[in-house]
Simulated scan of single mutants.
Amino acid sequence: MKPQFLGEAVNGTVREAYVEASSFLEACEVQDARIVCELLLQHVLGVSRSEMLFMWSEKFPAARATSWREGIQRKAEGEPVQYIIGETDFYGITLGVGPGVLIPRPETELLVEHMMHEAVRLFGQGAELTLADVGTGSGAIPVTIARHCPAWRVYASDLSPQALEIARKNAARCGVHEQITFFEGDLLRPFIEGRIAVDVLVSNPPYIPAREIPSLQPEVRLFEPHLALVGGEDGLEPYRRLCEQLPELPKMPTLVGFEVGMGQAEDVAALLRACGNYEVHFVKDLAGIDRHVIGVQI
């Protein structure tokens, strides 16, 4: 059990409260404790980073002391800071997140960027396309693409009603709710049953093998939804099922993009080639890992 954060420095200045809390989180072995502490402080005070620094020598607001202590304690116990503050940044926008959805990762920003680039290369700038995002979670992918591609008709599906509620709120928050249609359902089933012809298909499905869950970082293993993490015994089950379902769509998507786990790219590429006439290439993440499998119909 983690020690209790007393937060006695809230009787002093904002800086003193920050120093006490960041030292406490470091003692609790929280990664990037000072950065996390800054984010929590900005959230509790309701200010930007520059505004927070201007308040550095001011007395800590007594009305915010309880929220401050609670936030620091939750972080010390391993909860992701994004869940505590209720939001995260993704590709230049701010999205709401909560325990019902996976926290969007920087790797997925690369997938979004590459899919938009490939679509322009294949169809031309300003083309009116139909996009389907499968397993949308927080809605990070469809919301971002809808903002950057206003001519596209965007659909998104998820098996979790809780995730869809968050995704719909993010679409409204970012002003693209009229451009996106959300479906509750398993993988491609809503698109098959709705006879929706898709030009661009993208998915960041669960891909962690079940046996690896115990070895994940505690803040992932204990707080993020396993429905969005576990991809069966070998992590490839969602891709198998997606590739089995693809031929049931009214037409095969011209462009397909999957995010995959480390070491899975070749296996997923083989599944995609087997289900359709796709030329496949990989996109590496910032660590040099083949993170995205991109298929173009030839």
Rank of each mutant, 00 (worst) to 15 (best):
M1D: 12
L6A: 02
G7K: 01
E8T: 04
A9F: 14
G12L: 05
A17L: 04
V19Y: 15
E20F: 11
E26R: 06
E26D: 11
E26H: 09
A27Y: 14
A27L: 14
A33F: 12
A33Y: 12
R34C: 00
I35D: 13
Q42L: 08
Q42G: 12
H43M: 06
V44C: 11
V47S: 04
R49S: 08
R49G: 03
S50G: 01
E51Y: 12
M52S: 06
M52H: 09
E58V: 00
A62H: 13
A63M: 12
K75M: 02
K75L: 08
E79C: 05
Y83K: 03
D89T: 04
F90I: 02
T94L: 05
G96P: 09
V101E: 06
V101D: 11
L102N: 08
I103P: 14
P104A: 03
R105Q: 03
E107A: 00
T108V: 02
E113G: 08
H114T: 13
R121L: 10
L122N: 07
L122H: 11
F123E: 07
G124R: 06
A127G: 00
A127W: 14
L129K: 03
A132F: 09
D133F: 11
T136A: 09
P142D: 06
P142Y: 08
H148Y: 15
V154R: 03
D158H: 07
L159T: 03
P161C: 07
Q162E: 15
I166G: 06
K169M: 11
I180R: 05
I180E: 12
F182D: 01
F183C: 04
G185D: 02
I192L: 03
G194E: 13
A197T: 01
V198T: 01
V202P: 09
N204W: 06
P205Q: 03
Y207I: 04
I208R: 05
A210H: 04
E212G: 02
L216W: 14
V220H: 14
V220L: 09
F223G: 03
H226I: 05
A228C: 07
A228G: 00
L229H: 06
G231V: 02
E233K: 10
E233A: 07
D234C: 07
G235C: 03
L236R: 05
P238A: 01
R240P: 13
C243P: 10
Q245M: 11
L249R: 05
M252Y: 15
L255Q: 04
L255V: 00
G257S: 09
G257L: 14
F258T: 02
Q264K: 04
D267H: 11
V268P: 14
A269R: 03
L271G: 08
A274P: 15
C275Q: 09
Y278F: 01
V280E: 13
V280Q: 10
H281L: 08
F282Y: 15
L286P: 09
G288L: 10
V293L: 09
Q297D: 14
I298K: 15
